[in-house]
């Protein structure tokens, strides 16, 4: 029968009441924050399998396969070493072991850099998946972090070989590597989640990311000693540079892996900043992403 010809039946209840009576829930209802966390936890196997699948499919078409996970950081380090270590000879009297110093910065910053650019694209690039399957959308940016964390572990083994080869001793401070990586991963996860929602709404932001990343990198003392900042900057400019989370993480990592590294701030202060940045960025990113959960399919 054509729908227009049907009058409301004698029951006299609206569709909404009918739905409520039978316990149907609205498809657009946002899950509560704890429920959303539980949902993500329930999908942890999917996140793991999806990240693994993404890595396989990235390297699947190359002959060397996952060897590239290790080769890429080595090549990266070589390029920066040739330019800044050999050609420009950036090493001053401040840093005795410039190669290890440089590689620590390049690898740590590289982790954040790929997470930011991947996170911003993660919702937009997977619109087909989002419109086809039901899963907590946060799985997409989180899996970007998981993929890059795996690459980071490969980079870290390269870094440790470089550090040892350049004559640094193994000390108890090396144990700090794990908590630093944990904080950095949490921080990056927050960034990826934040960027994912931002990138899905403001598509123009993708064009600005490279510039933002470049400014951030120069502000994180990746390619030159941090003394360039502490010697020449004063007042609010110095405070701004020193509050930079990436500078904090890179400094801490250098401090734990190498002897004789001059820091911009005392280690205790750096640790407080590292934990604060990780907590704040993760919470802000997560809540911001969760608020938009139901709208990602719209495009």
């Amino acid at each position: 029968m054509p729908q227009t010809a049907v009058a409301d039946s004698g029951t006299g209840i609206s569709l909404k009441e009918f739905a409520a009576r039978h316990g149907l829930h609205s498809a657009a209802a946002l899950p509560s924050l704890p429920a959303y966390l539980r949902e993500i936890w329930a999908y942890r196997h999917f996140i793991r399998a999806y990240s693994g699948a993404r890595i396989t499919s990235t390297f699947g078409q190359t002959r060397l396969g996952t060897i590239w996970q290790v080769l890429t950081p080595i090549l990266n380090a070589a390029v920066y070493y040739v330019i800044f270590g050999v050609l420009l000879n950036t090493k001053g009297g401040d840093v005795s072991n410039f190669i290890a110093y440089l590689c620590t910065g390049v690898f740590l910053f590289g982790f954040t850099q790929v997470v930011v650019s991947g996170g911003i694209n993660s919702v937009h690039a997977n619109l087909g998946l989002i419109r086809a399957l039901h899963f907590p959308r946060a799985a997409l940016p989180i899996s970007i972090v998981a993929i890059e964390l795996r690459n980071m572990v490969a980079s870290m083994s390269v870094l440790i070989i470089i550090v040892l080869a350049t004559g640094e001793p193994i000390t108890l401070e090396w144990l700090f590597v794990l908590p630093i990586l944990l904080c950095l991963s949490l921080f990056n996860c927050g960034l990826a989640l934040f960027g994912a929602r931002l990138g899905s709404k403001l598509t123009d932001i993708r064009q600005l990311v490279p510039f933002f990343i470049r400014v951030w990198m120069y502000g994180s003392a990746v390619l030159y000693p941090v003394q360039r900042f502490t010697d020449h900057l004063h007042g609010w400019k110095l405070a701004l540079v020193e509050a930079n989370p990436m500078l904090v993480y890179i400094e801490l990592m250098r401090h734990s892996l190498m002897e004789n590294v001059k820091l911009a701030s005392p280690p205790t202060q750096l640790w407080i900043e590292a934990i604060a940045w990780a907590t704040v960025m993760f919470s802000v990113g997560f809540i911001y992403f969760w608020r938009g959960e139901k709208g990602y399919g719209r495009g």
Partner: peptide, 22 residues
């Protein structure tokens, strides 16, 4: 897609029992 909860409705509502799969 709207029934599956993959596309949000701008006005009106879609109710479903369980999680519909597309």
């Amino acid at each position: 897609r709207a029934v599956a909860g993959l596309m949000p409705a701008d006005r009106g509502a879609v109710y479903a029992s369980g999680q519909p799969s597309l």
